[in-house]
Each structure stands twice: as structure tokens, then as C-alpha cells.
């Protein structure tokens, strides 16, 4: 009964929206598919990273499928998650994707109340018939970044590179989610050069560029010439340091190569846009992967190294070929990359 009321409300509200001219003309294909909502995580739209990338995939998916959809931002996204998701489901939305990590638990809790709505959570595994979990094989992408860095770091023919087999990585905080990147990176580096020294540091913050710059400069002073940043906003300082010292940083999550052209060797790109777009397509096609954990790895093009627009010309083709070879090995299963979040810590790290 309540639901009927709400549906009536929704119709009314949609009518209002239409009057506002706010609703894009729906395409024929999606006439019978309920709209989709994308809940933006802490940091909001305009973060130039996670949220913006996901939103790009969301928009692409909407365009491709003709499904109607909207992004939802909240100043209080941590506490309001459950209310927002319920409101969306009550409001007749058929797909609710949350980019906010903390929403996993409430999503799992409310999903059974809304069998007609599909839910998607990122970076964690939750259960429910109408709930899909998306995880990224960041360890695989980091492995390739490590393999590339380990080759480049001893090639003094490349500008800014010394002969020492030393590279670095800086994490935001010490946690399994971050160490998943770091361990993959170390493993990839050691795969091409078992004697390599990988320096590891944690900034204890995801929002402290000054600290990142300071840590990166310390690593450069110790002989490292390439530092992988796994530290969100702190990483901006790491890239700044690479630029200032004439060395290299490796970007993370999004393509950060252009933040300091020529000083970002590559970026380990997490293709949340690919994931969101894929889910939208499945949903529009009536094949929502409810109850499943979708792993977006190298194989699914869910993680990747960037196109290296500014550095490609400096890197010998053989190195890139080696990276491609390792990637093929991971895709076909012959190379296995250690996942800290699944298997705990390996012997070679802690």
C-alpha cells in the first residue's frame, strides 16, 4: 500500500521534473527499464579521480543503453547512505550503484526489502540476490607498473634515471586495501629483477600533499628514481616531487600522466568507468549479475597501465613488450599475482 503511494508520488515528481525540462528525452530501448542512480562517494564530483571516472562510465552507459539515470551527491554521504538508497528504491529506481565504500553494509541490509531494485557496491564483496559486488584486481595492474619500473630504473640512457636498482612506493595508510597495490607492485618488480630494492613508506594520510612530497624527496635522495603513489590526494605531492627533482612518479586510479608531463612514468588506471558502464549494459539488457562478485582485472580491461602519452617515446620498446608479455601471462592464468585482501601477507612483504 505504502509502495503504491510512493509510486504515485514518483509519477508526480517525475512530472515536475519533466516540466522543469530536466529529464533527457528517453530513448525507445529503455522505455520499460527503470532509471539508475549513481551515489557519489566522499570527495564528490570534480575530484578528478574515482568519482569523476565512474560518472564518465555512467554517462557513457546511459547514452549507450538509453536508460535514464542521475548522480546523487550528499554532504553527509557516510551517514545518509541508507536513506539515500532507500529513497532511490522507493522512488522507483531499478539500479542503485554506490561508489561509497561505507555503503556496503547498509546496502546488504536493505537489498532484500527491495527485490525490484538492483544494487551495486564497489571494492568489497557483499551478498544478496539483487546485489552485485565489483572488485578490481589492482594487484594485477600494480604488478605491471612494478615490472615496468624495475626495467626502467637501471637504464641510465633515460633522462633522470640512475644506475641503482632502487624504486619506491608510497601508500596512504597501512591497510590491506593499500597493501594489495604495494605487494603487487613489489612482485612485478621482482619478476623482472629479483635483486631490486623496493622502498616502501606510508604517509598516514590520503590528503597531505606536503607529506607526500617530503617522503618522495627522501626516497629520491636514497637512490630511487621512480616512486609509485598509492595515496590519493597525498600523491599529488609525490608527483610534484618527481617534477621538481627531475625523476618519475607512477600515478594511480586515474590517468595522472598529464599532471606533470614527462615525469609521470605511467599510471595504474582503475577502470571504474568500464565497470559501471558494463553493469549498466547488463542491467539494461535484463541480465543484471545479481548475487555475483564481478572482478575487473587485466582480462576485463578493468585495470590497466595508462597510454603513457608523454613518456612512451623514452621507454625502449623491449620493456613495453615485456610488460605486454607479463600481462598476457596474467590474463591466461600462467602468472598469478598475490592478492593481500584474499590471501593475507606474502613472505616477501611483512
Amino acid at each position: 500500500m505504502e509502495k503504491g503511494n510512493l509510486m504515485k508520488n514518483l509519477t508526480k515528481l517525475l512530472a515536475v521534473s519533466t516540466v522543469l525540462g530536466a529529464v533527457a528525452a528517453p530513448q525507445a530501448a529503455a522505455a520499460d527499464v527503470a532509471p539508475a542512480a549513481l551515489i557519489i562517494a566522499q570527495g564528490g564530483l570534480g575530484d578528478g579521480s574515482w568519482n569523476d571516472t565512474a560518472y564518465a562510465g555512467f554517462k557513457a552507459g546511459l547514452e549507450k543503453t538509453g536508460v535514464e539515470g542521475r548522480p546523487i551527491e550528499s554532504k553527509d554521504v557516510v551517514a545518509q547512505g541508507e536513506e539515500i538508497m532507500r529513497r532511490a528504491a522507493d522512488g522507483g529506481f531499478g539500479l542503485v550503484v554506490s561508489l561509497e565504500w561505507i555503503h556496503g553494509e547498509p546496502m546488504q541490509k536493505i537489498a532484500p526489502d527491495y527485490p525490484d531494485t538492483n544494487f551495486v557496491i564497489m571494492n568489497q564483496t557483499r551478498e544478496g540476490d539483487n546485489l552485485a559486488s565489483v572488485v578490481f584486481a589492482e594487484h594485477q595492474g600494480s604488478y605491471l607498473a612494478g615490472a615496468l619500473a624495475a626495467q626502467v630504473t637501471t637504464d641510465t640512457s633515460i633522462e633522470g634515471i640512475n644506475a641503482d636498482p632502487v624504486i619506491g612506493v608510497i601508500g596512504g595508510v597501512k591497510s590491506p586495501g593499500i597493501d594489495k597495490f604495494i605487494v603487487g607492485y613489489i612482485q612485478g618488480a621482482k619478476a623482472v629483477n629479483p635483486d631490486i630494492d623496493v622502498k616502501v613508506a606510508y604517509a598516514e594520510s590520503f590528503g597531505d600533499p606536503a607529506k607526500g612530497e617530503q617522503l618522495a624527496k627522501a626516497m629520491f635522495a636514497e637512490g630511487a628514481d621512480i616512486v609509485y603513489q598509492v595515496a590519493g590526494g597525498t600523491g599529488i605531492g609525490i608527483i610534484e616531487a618527481a617534477k621538481a627533482e627531475g625523476r618519475y612518479a607512477i600515478g594511480v586510479d586515474t590517468d595522472q600522466d598529464s599532471m606533470a608531463p614527462g615525469h609521470v612514468l605511467t599510471s595504474m588506471v582503475k577502470r571504474v568507468d568500464v565497470a559501471v558502464e558494463k553493469i549498466l549494459e547488463d542491467y539494461a539488457g535484463g541480465a543484471f549479475p545479481g548475487g555475483q562478485v564481478l572482478t575487473f582485472g587485466l582480462k576485463e580491461n578493468g585495470v590497466a597501465l595508462s597510454d603513457m602519452e608523454h613518456t612512451k617515446d623514452r621507454i625502449p620498446a623491449a620493456y613495453l613488450a615485456k610488460v605486454e608479455e607479463l600481462k598476457a601471462g596474467i590474463v591466461d592464468g600462467s602468472v598469478e599475482v598475490w592478492d593481500v585482501t584474499e590471501k593475507g601477507y606474502p613472505d616477501f612483504y611483512n
Partner: peptide
């Protein structure tokens, strides 16, 4: 303002 300001985005193009 916090709750409505968020959920109106479901039904309109008014940003937060």
C-alpha cells in the same frame, strides 16, 4: 536541507 537536498537530485537536475 541535508536530506531533501540530496534526494531531490533523484528527481531533478538541481545539484547539491
Amino acid at each position: 536541507l541535508a536530506s531533501a537536498g540530496t534526494t531531490i537530485q533523484l528527481f531533478s537536475d538541481v545539484p547539491l
